[in-house]
Nucleic acid binder design. Structure first.
Lengths: 149, 149
DNA sequence: TGGTAATCGACAACGATTGTTGATTCCTCG
DNA sequence: CGAGGAATCAACAATCGTTGTCGATTACCA
């Protein structure tokens, strides 16, 4: 994710205006290692700007995604998640709570073997590891203890 | 995907009734290499049973998924796709039209490296190759020709 | 400073999926 | 075969995440 200053320039270049709302979202995303949903960004933004609208949040996130400064992940957790990290990386997804974590590992062998592409022109490769995160595992154990009691 | 006969037995074991509607869906899924959406299954089923309801289709598909006889894929194409192939395999997804194709390749190196799991207990690994399918590529070329004309 | 993009609030609409109802069908077990 | 109860139907409403609409207001920036 570029810095707020860089994003400001990019928006100006594109003829998009740099409003306080957008700057706020730039700041929230910059260096954010989580993969917030639109609602999460909205909640965080409202802490600073109580009158910001959900619409504006979506608008700005979509603008960023169109410019390639942000990736949209649909990992089957119900809502889209916005990934400020544009570098090549993969994801750990919790099947229980939907949490998403980055996995910075390169899998050079993961390619479609010659002759198996079935006519597809491949543009991107995603690896998703699904499982249960630490917190949800702890919850499970707590539940078991309750069951014993 | 098990045969309709096997599925019939499984449903009985679970105390679920084997209605004509369900048998119809069993048949449609068996040996189906596509990844139909619920709507697609609905359309195919209605060709045989004009009065079957979308509700019943979802119901049966969800029952099958709960029993592990079917996988539900959420590949960011808007709607869930039902995968009758329960064996380990990966997918090619068309970013343009949402088409999904199987890719039967094993990637033994795709594992979370020791110490990188961040507390996750990994249960499943998916590799998704995104790109443009042959049909959509052809469409693009046709569009270009039109643009020239 | 002015033109125009962006935002706001409040609400409606979308598509995919699930829930509701009460009446009807029909599977399954004895 | 017959009874009991699940499953289905039709028709509709509701959910969730997201996007569109409106007119009025704000505020960026050449």
């Amino acid at each position: 994710m570029k810095t707020p200053v860089e994003l400001t320039e990019l928006f100006r270049e594109r003829g998009l205006k740099v409003t306080p709302q957008r700057q706020c979202i730039f700041r929230l995303l910059h260096g954010n290692a989580a993969h917030p949903t639109a609602e999460a960004v909205y909640a965080a933004a409202r802490a600073e700007m109580p009158t910001i609208s959900l619409k504006t949040v979506y608008q700005t996130l979509n603008d960023l995604a169109e410019m390639g400064e942000l990736h949209v992940l649909d990992l089957g957790t119900g809502s889209g998640r916005f990934d400020p990290n544009v570098d090549a990386h993969h994801h750990l997804v919790c099947d229980r709570c939907g949490k998403v974590r980055d996995l910075h590992v390169d899998f050079p062998d993961v390619r479609v073997p010659r002759g198996k592409a079935q006519g597809f022109r491949i543009l991107d490769t995603e690896v998703v590891f699904r499982g249960i995160c630490d917190e949800c595992q702890t919850e499970d154990e707590t539940d078991k203890e309750k069951a014993h009691a």
